[in-house]
């Protein structure tokens, strides 16, 4: 049932090599970012960016895994676990590469289990508690619609390892979006109660979506180098995905442009600390043990 072999493929270098083989050779390979030596400011920005990607998938994957055995239907228990598995698998790639580029010998597990809350770089949206299942689905939908656009752009990154991970992950994200969008429509346009719940979720979560499109100096460096898109450039495509689905779901898009932010700089909600206390318990309580 699970796509375990895929999930467990952790060899980012092999993935990148296959992605590189599928791409036309650059005019001058020495110019290609991702080969050593990387320009220092770019390297620092790249580590930051990879950490943001990996923390988004780690934290959201963790939240989804909290549903395991508690979903509203058996099919949902299976589906949500599948998406959590994909996201944890992607985390292994992103954080694995972050550690590699950083060059301080940290592995994906060190980054996931041994950083404290201020070092996490995920957007606030993904760390919010699950709420009811409608809340979980709405959060997933708003994220998936961004994730697909971000990964699609990243698949054309000048950094071959980034492009390799994105090319694999975008296929999974497409499936996630298909599922979450479908359920948002069916529950928005379902019973009065299901519409009320989906609208309430949208009202709460909408102000957290804006952070996905806020850029900073890190993004500027990477956009300049062609490594990652300017976050703001993804907004139009996201709107083009999200608004028609919400309309079909008979849901009203909240007014206002206010966006909660801070996660990408390490300023989080109170919820993340509790999540990490649980997630990191064994690594913290038994330092140096292998599992």
């Amino acid at each position: 049932m699970p796509s375990l072999p895929d999930v467990m493929t952790r060899d980012a270098a092999a993935l990148a090599a296959s992605a590189a083989a599928a791409r036309p050779a650059p005019d001058d390979p020495a110019d290609e970012v991702g080969r050593e030596p990387v320009h220092e400011p770019t390297r620092a920005a790249l580590v930051e960016f990879l950490t943001r990607m990996g923390d988004n998938t780690l934290v959201l994957g963790h939240r989804l895994s909290e549903w395991c055995g508690h979903g509203p239907a058996l099919e949902e228990d299976i589906g949500v676990a599948n998406i959590a598995l994909d996201l944890i698998g992607q985390t292994q790639f992103w954080l694995g590469l972050a550690g590699e580029v950083e060059g301080r010998g940290r592995k994906a597990d060190d980054l996931a289990f041994l950083r404290d809350v201020w070092e996490f770089r995920n957007v606030l949206l993904v760390e919010l508690p699950n709420g009811d299942y409608g809340h979980t689905l709405m959060r997933q939908f708003l994220f998936d619609a961004w994730h697909v656009e971000a990964l699609r752009a990243l698949a054309a990154s000048t950094e071959v390892r980034v492009a390799g991970i994105a090319a694999k992950a975008v296929k999974e994200a497409h499936y996630h979006l298909e599922k979450s969008a479908d359920l948002v429509v069916r529950l928005g346009d379902g019973t009065e109660e299901s519409r009320r719940r989906m609208q309430a979720a949208l009202d709460v979560l909408w102000p957290y979506a804006g952070e996905l499109f806020l850029g900073d100096a890190v993004d500027a460096v990477l956009a300049e180098a062609g490594i990652a898109p300017d976050p703001a450039s993804l907004r139009a495509a996201w709107d083009a995905t999200v608004r028609p689905i919400l309309a079909e779901a008979t849901l009203r898009v909240p007014d206002g442009t206010f966006a909660h932010k801070g996660g990408r700089r390490g300023i989080h909600t109170e919820h993340l600390g509790r999540m990490l206390a649980e997630m990191q318990f064994l690594q913290r309580a038994y330092p140096g043990a292998t599992w």
Partner: peptide
Amino acid sequence: WITRAPTLERKAILLAKVQDEAGHGL
């Protein structure tokens, strides 16, 4: 224990296993 699994790999394996159980139920 899924939310307290000690490594990413262990978390993925345990998630896959529990997901299998839901599949068996189905």
